[in-house]
Design a protein around this nucleic acid. Sequence first.
DNA 1: CAATCTTTGTGCACGCGTTCACAAAGGCAT
DNA 2: ATGCCTTTGTGAACGCGTGCACAAAGATTG
Lengths: 265, 265
Amino acid sequence: MATGRTHRPATRSRGIPEATVARLPLYLRALTALSERSVPTVSSEELAAAAGVNSAKLRKDFSYLGSYGTRGVGYDVEYLVYQISRELGLTQDWPVVIVGIGNLGAALANYGGFASRGFRVAALIDADPAMAGKPVAGIPVQHTDELEKIIQDEGVSIGVIATPAGAAQQVCERLVAAGVTSILNFAPTVLSVPDGVDVRKVDLSIELQILAFHEQRKAGELAAGAVVPAAASRQETAARRGAAAGREPAADQGPDGDVPAVMPT
Amino acid sequence: MATGRTHRPATRSRGIPEATVARLPLYLRALTALSERSVPTVSSEELAAAAGVNSAKLRKDFSYLGSYGTRGVGYDVEYLVYQISRELGLTQDWPVVIVGIGNLGAALANYGGFASRGFRVAALIDADPAMAGKPVAGIPVQHTDELEKIIQDEGVSIGVIATPAGAAQQVCERLVAAGVTSILNFAPTVLSVPDGVDVRKVDLSIELQILAFHEQRKAGELAAGAVVPAAASRQETAARRGAAAGREPAADQGPDGDVPAVMPT
DNA sequence: CAATCTTTGTGCACGCGTTCACAAAGGCAT
DNA sequence: ATGCCTTTGTGAACGCGTGCACAAAGATTG
């Protein structure tokens, strides 16, 4: 996954481990797909395969919610969909505001995965006066001045920050002051928030950097002639690029002779 | 972070724990900011605060890379930027293709955080013939038919999937067959890939669902009259919505009387 | 040069998460 | 009704990640 992780450990609630909570949406998605195909029941083995996890893990996860399965048969799909939705709080309506309607903000506003899971885009907010009134995804963009009023009128408790990094902390503070207690942050910054406010972070470039690390490792192993499990068809190309990227600091310079990556965040 | 996690455990390489690798980009960002302000050295305490982590954790993370600090002084910012960039493989050029140029794909193409960290958008690919030739972020979109050729010509090993869920697996298979060994998946599906291929997942709606879970828990605790650390100013609104969302299954129905969230993925 | 002060690097313990393996439980066939 | 077969639910062991606390190391000051 991408994605960042919580800032605070987020103490486990009612004994449901954080790791399990993070997997519930995965199960829910797989179950929903089964539900649409009118599959009545599913075994832990099948569902685990569909969700991409270990079946023992899945059973243990479900055991935290209660005993919703039938031995010898499996789980009732519809019932499980409901129980998980309920546990995640998706049976209620969650008004959400998106702040920062650039490319990413617009993409989020258009993203279908929100509305279908109980999330309602209550407002789109941007600091650019030129954006005000312009409809995005059928919703008129409102100016930042209205932020506090919107939050309070709509009873918004979840905010999405898709602004540039420089504006994120300030927006965050205004959201929190107005009553938001959960924030999904797409800006590449560490947000500091008071206790009681949850922040989750999604960072697009971090994920790529992690991939690059593993990719480099693969290339290094190939160049070193180490055994590699599969991906044999790829060897030439990977080796071509990574051959010079040896482990030891033979030279003090990078393989391309370039300078360290420096960016304006 | 949000975010999804790796599909495979991704065996630790050269003894650097996966958790540490995931934090290196955070440190790198904080260090880059310091570098721009021409700060020569930084202590583990300061840097940890800037990156939003524990200072002991940070020191332990750095210890996996080697002894790059000076006791009594701290770490040399420039040197550390270089070492981390190098470790992450950011000192080399990574051509990347983005498949699926919808709202999200366009946002990714425009995202500045890529180019600045050694990632180069080698091509934008979309299945819609009407998109072909249309420039997005200054790069002309190419048709899916060209996929294999592009991958091979450019030596691309990292692919980004931003297609609808239904197309993701097929695109994935074509990418892998053409030589891609690392995939960043934004489509809400579990991708199945052969050994040797890394997949990281970013799922926007999963993060929101996790926030909703905690939000519901907070609301439940407030309604139950439990002590709550801070966020006192918010109590009324949160309680208003969450009051009926008690822990015990008083009614078999959700607080809003609505049906379980069912969506088309 | 010696004493002091700051900060790193890490040994150690603890807790969480994962996985194995199996007993209990229920359906189903005979 | 009885026995078999399937699948759940979970006890227990293991490994990873985290955080504490401190010794070692180097700078700095007198």
